[in-house]
Amino acid sequence: MSNRVAVLVLLMVISLTGCAGQIQDEQAQPPSDDPKEKGFTGYVVDRKEDSILVVSPEYEDFGSNGGASRYYPAKWFSNAPDPQVGSYVEIWTDGGPENEPYPGRARAESIAEYTAATPDGAKISEADAIRGGLYLPDGERISVPVIEDVEFQADTGTWKVRMRDAMAVDQDQSHVELEVRDVEPVEPVQEHESE
């Protein structure tokens, strides 16, 4: 009987340890005195000075009300000096008024940047692949890019980046699939001062 009790106690300790880990992960959100609601999430698809354009890959369907059947939330956030194009972020605003013409505008209060995945065998990360796709000629033609899927093809050494234009009138025809080569980014050469 004592073996059963020992096993039961061990299982309870393991369960409690797992719960504590989940609580810590939830508290890893931006520090604040009061709890925050879910922020605006999406991919950074453009940058101008300290502002970033973030577009959510999750669309809303307003077709039953006569609106767009695929409305992708998108906002320019000022006060965002760090996140690079291609990053997946969650942004909380300062509560100030937001401008509504599409894409909207708001001021960022805090930003959580999620680490981009680098699959086994890949030389660049998912964020690097997205950035590379956005800078290709077909990617640059999209006015408000929606990142739908990013997939590493180990057998060909390429990334498939699927996106669409949130501003396209015909959403069924707005798909673009780009191929980005998986090559190491070139590091800038630093000049050494001669002694």
Rank of each mutant, 00 (worst) to 15 (best):
R4D: 13
S78Q: 10
G104I: 00
T156P: 00
V55D: 07
Q173F: 04
E191M: 15
V45A: 02
V176H: 11
R164Y: 07
V176N: 03
G67E: 03
D34L: 10
F77A: 14
Y71V: 00
G86I: 00
D50R: 11
E26N: 14
P83Q: 03
P31S: 14
Q22S: 14
S78L: 10
D138L: 07
L134T: 02
D155C: 05
G42D: 12
E100A: 13
R4W: 02
T158N: 13
D149Y: 08
T93P: 01
M12N: 08
T17C: 08
A108W: 00
E187Y: 00
V85F: 04
E26C: 10
A117C: 02
W92C: 01
M167L: 10
Q22K: 14
E148Q: 14
V89T: 04
S32D: 15
P103L: 02
Y114A: 06
D128S: 14
S110A: 11
E109I: 00
D120K: 10
R4K: 11
M163G: 12
F40V: 00
I130Y: 00
E58Q: 10
A116F: 08
V7M: 07
T156N: 01
L178T: 04
F152V: 03
V44H: 02
S15T: 15
W92H: 14
A168S: 14
S2N: 12
G39C: 01
A74E: 09
W159G: 10
I52V: 12
L11T: 12
A20Y: 07
N99Y: 11
E60K: 12
A106G: 07
P185N: 04
I23W: 11
G66Q: 02
M1R: 00
K36L: 14
R181Q: 08
L134A: 05
Y59I: 00
E148L: 15
V146C: 05
Q190P: 02
E26P: 00
P97E: 14
T156I: 05
G133C: 07
R107L: 02
I14N: 11
S15L: 15
S2A: 15
E179W: 04
L134M: 04
A112V: 07
Y71C: 06
G66E: 03
K38A: 09
N3Q: 12
G121F: 07
D50I: 07
P83H: 02
Q24Y: 03
A74R: 09
R162C: 05
P73I: 09
G132T: 09
D50E: 11
I142W: 06
P185H: 04
